[in-house]
Amino acid sequence: MEKTPVNLDAYRELTGKVIGCAMQVHRVLGTGFQEVIYQRALAIELEQCGVVAQRELEMPIYYRQKEIGSRRVDFLVEETVLVELKALSALNEAHHAQIINYLEAYRLPIGLLINFGASSLEFKRFVKTRPIY
């Protein structure tokens, strides 16, 4: 099957808004809280900015086009962007692999990994490079 690359420009504005909201939460709360506190604050901030997001959404997981289970995602923004939150002192390759795997399993085109635990907000965009089936 032919690869259909994801157009990052189409998502840049939306992911930029989410990152901006996360920066505001980090500015106000700083570090040291549990992930759920940042999640609740980000939900408020996203709503204030008019970004449609579902929090703690139960999503099906697929393997070879078959649903094999489900898991809750931190946020699904405008039904296309997966947002995974962390509150850790540092991110590592395992966290990057986790979100890449989530994009594959959930059949989503783009994801954001946001870490509130560092002294400065850490974030990274991930784009699905394989076709979405």
Rank of each mutant, 00 (worst) to 15 (best):
S119M: 13
L57K: 13
V18N: 06
Q34F: 14
E47M: 04
L57H: 03
P109C: 01
L91H: 10
I132E: 08
E104C: 11
A22D: 06
A90T: 01
E122H: 12
C49D: 13
Y63I: 02
Q54Y: 06
E56C: 02
I99N: 15
S70D: 09
L76K: 11
Q24C: 01
V52T: 08
F126R: 04
C21Y: 10
R27S: 09
F116G: 05
K66Q: 15
R71S: 09
E79Q: 11
E58N: 09
D74L: 09
E93F: 10
Q48W: 03
A87N: 04
E56N: 15
G69E: 01
L91C: 02
Y62C: 00
I37E: 09
T80S: 12
L29T: 00
N92E: 04
I44N: 12
G111H: 13
L46E: 10
G111T: 01
E45M: 09
F126Y: 10
I110H: 01
L82V: 05
A105T: 08
S120E: 14
A118P: 06
L91M: 03
I99A: 06
E84L: 06
L76Q: 05
P109V: 13
I114T: 01
A118F: 09
S70R: 11
F75K: 07
V36S: 15
F123W: 15
Y133L: 14
N101V: 00
L85M: 07
Y62E: 04
Y62D: 05
E56G: 09
D74E: 11
R125G: 08
G30F: 10
A118M: 10
L91A: 02
L85G: 04
A41V: 00
T31Y: 04
R125E: 07
H96C: 14
G69D: 01
T129W: 08
E104S: 12
K17P: 07
E78Q: 07
K17T: 08
T31K: 05
A53D: 05
Q98R: 05
K66C: 05
G16S: 06
V127K: 11
V73N: 08
Y38K: 03
E56L: 03
I99K: 15
Q48L: 10
E122P: 09
F123M: 12
L46K: 05
F116Y: 05
